[in-house]
Design a protein around this nucleic acid. Structure first.
Lengths: 239, 239
DNA sequence: GCACAAAGTTCCGCTAGACGGAACAAGATT
DNA sequence: AATCTTGTTCCGTCTAGCGGAACTTTGTGC
């Protein structure tokens, strides 16, 4: 395990985590590394174009890591295919739509199109939320055999009503979509997207204030969501 | 200049560049490094969560670098503020709108909202185009004193009609927006966004097929663009 | 404005650990 | 079955990363 490599990523992560420019000594403290070591590695990162130093000597990350990262997601078949479907879903429903993928025990928000009358959201693109707490996550879990162990691991950190969740997942499996109220006052509806015959690792979801998600509107949105999911699955399976 | 660090990023970049999973020997060849070295560093990267190995032994980058990167852009004031303005501009014009930032001699596409009837675009979010070739880039350059040297550096690699470009920039400066036809058949209109009194390093742009950008529509779009730019600048200056 | 504090940078001897050639194992190809 | 090719492991060599301390610069408080 190359020590310098490991340390360089720790520094880069600390740099990205610190909102705004970071001082050398802060990074040194955050990573628990000698100042001279941090200084040397930062010089290397700067030379490579991953960090920058302003006039006052403080360091900030550059957009280099973003360029690499965006290249990675742009290569994901799900991401490429989803773009168009997300838009049509957004247009037909008029609400906030999201694309999430399962990453470990979390759901990772890959893309989000926000409604004209936006909701106060706790999540932004790039953020993680434990899968069993979100509509998209539940939709994914409901079709995976490893759902129980994921739920168990999450339950070890937060308190979850595991039995209730299990019966809820069973319901999701039957009707094809999941519901959630993770952010207070907003309801989400999620549907899992599977590629090939594999267990699903992505989901589409629609979110709106609870009062906007009732009666006919709600039924229409669910229909649009399931329709989009079907079309998208079909597009993914077409080689 | 820590060698192992430099090499690890070279490997990560090669991994991200190679669309789809990459083989060890390919990475070894691409980075001009010994197989054993690449193997060891990949093991480190895997342990750190930046790379993964599938059953067939091939390596692929994870979403880790994207998570870091998206955190970096999410911290950019321009990016945070732009989101809402991009949406309203997209809605009022109905066309494709983009947010770009100046990065070196290039313009980097940070965000893009695509029109319902989309254009065949050569650019995607995360891609780079030499600044003098795009509407957004010209708009930015027209308000910067270092424009001549950027143009000169770009002209060294591609052939540019430098004198024509300089007079065009002068026009941009006077009317407040720039025009471009970088992608064949599509016209873009760009306006620079400056924060504080500093020289601008970002731009908003609207793109559409040439035939949709004529007469009254065109005037309306330009008005909407300049209006949005004004509002956004105001929002950025408000602390 | 001076003195003190804290932050960034440089230096250098030490040695841990990265390096790379070669050998080995496991598939894939002919 | 024979032959590549690819991923993995081993190990002696020695370089390059390490960290404590000294030095310089920037900023802060009286």
């Amino acid at each position: 395990m190359d020590r310098a490599v490991s340390r360089s990523f720790a520094i880069l992560e600390a740099l990205a985590r610190s909102r705004g420019p970071a001082r050398l000594s802060d990074l040194s403290a955050a990573t628990d590394l000698q100042k001279s070591t941090v200084h040397r590695i930062l010089a290397t990162l700067s030379e490579l174009g991953y960090a920058d130093q302003d006039d006052s000597g403080r360091y900030r990350p550059t957009l280099r890591s973003w360029e690499i990262g965006i290249g990675v997601v742009a290569d994901l078949p799900i991401y490429r295919v989803a773009a168009g479907f997300l838009q049509t879903l957004h247009r037909t429903t008029g609400e906030t739509v999201s694309l999430t993928v399962l990453s470990g025990n979390d759901v990772l928000y890959l893309e989000k199109l926000t409604a004209a009358r936006p909701v106060r959201f706790l999540t932004r693109v790039g953020s993680r939320v434990p899968a069993p707490l979100t509509a998209g996550g539940k939709a994914i879990l409901s079709a995976r055999i490893d759902a129980p162990q994921i739920i168990e691991e999450v339950a070890a950190h937060r308190d979850l009503d595991v039995p209730a969740l299990m019966t809820e997942l069973e319901e999701c499996r039957q009707r094809g979509y999941a519901l959630s109220g993770y952010s207070p006052g907003v309801t989400s509806i999620g549907a899992a997207v599977a590629v090939g015959g594999a267990p699903p690792d992505a989901a589409l979801s629609v979110s709106a204030p609870r009062e906007r998600l009732a009666g006919k509107t709600r039924d229409a949105i669910i229909e649009a969501l399931l329709e989009t999911r079907a079309r998208m699955t079909e597009a993914l399976d077409r080689p």
